[in-house]
Design a protein around this nucleic acid. Structure first.
Lengths: 139, 139
DNA sequence: TCCTACGATAGACTTTGTCTAAGTCAAGTA
DNA sequence: TACTTGACTTAGACAAAGTCTATCGTAGGA
């Protein structure tokens, strides 16, 4: 679906073949791709697209709030197109599988004022780690 | 204090000048240093120490459970000597300042079974992000 | 159609971290 | 104390992820 493309165009985003391809790769996928994976998929649709453009475009999509950057893993950032529903992540410590999860309550409320040290807190990231069913079966 | 050194020696850790220096750098600091920062401080005490040794030693301290790896920032891992008291982190989105914080309750209990997808969860990391008093004053 | 500013490109560069081969040394043994 | 040995350290090459820069190309308005 081109909801994403429509929204971007509506915001005055200059549309180019490269940007369209990157947006399409993310839009169709309910997964968490690295920049390199996005590039690999984009290349199949538009062989000349460069790594720098993929990085630039991902960065813009993040700035626009259409895509979230996820750092469940120290190696590479991942890009999560599910930016419109707040959620956290559950990560398999062995195979790296990632699931979106929706904890109950607001994680911010667990942090009393006395533990905020005068900070203005705007965001909380929660990462649950463990073994997925597959990996715990073969452990 | 050399609590840390004593514990390490007690575990049969072979003591070398390099390891002592790395342990001392961490032991004295209630902060969150990157590997490079640890190396920089170690070099002032032992100029010949190499980067590889610092990485090796930090890795061993993590394996031994004496130091925690913290990834509040995508650029570099940070090493937290406060491994013996469970805590989470509060990070300034602008200047990168990090504070240890102690939320109430167990963050795991916020994740219902239906949201665990069969995973065996062993750990939860929570990172609160916002602006520290300094940065929100000058924003 | 033509212009022009914005976007795309290749590739060098940077940062963070890992690996390897060769040299060094802590600590056990006699 | 001197010897021995395997664990530790080193320099530097390598790798992965990402950023920067100079140049070229093109989307979209006039």
């Amino acid at each position: 679906m081109s909801d994403l493309l429509e929204r971007l165009r509506g915001r005055g985003w200059r549309m180019t073949a490269q940007r369209r391809v990157v947006a399409e790769v993310l839009d169709g996928e309910h997964v968490h791709l690295t920049a390199d994976e996005v590039h690999a998929r984009a290349v199949t649709k538009l062989p000349e697209i460069s790594r720098a453009t993929v990085y630039n475009t991902l960065g813009e999509l993040v700035t626009l709030g259409e895509v979230l950057e996820v750092s469940t893993d120290r190696r590479a950032k991942r890009y999560d197109p599910n930016a419109h529903r707040p959620h956290q992540h559950l990560v398999c410590a062995r195979c790296g599988a990632i699931r979106d999860v929706h904890p109950t309550g607001n994680p911010l409320s667990a942090l009393p004022d006395s533990e905020r040290f005068g900070f203005t807190i705007s965001d909380v990231e929660v990462t649950y780690r463990g073994l997925c069913p597959n990996c715990s079966a073969s452990a």
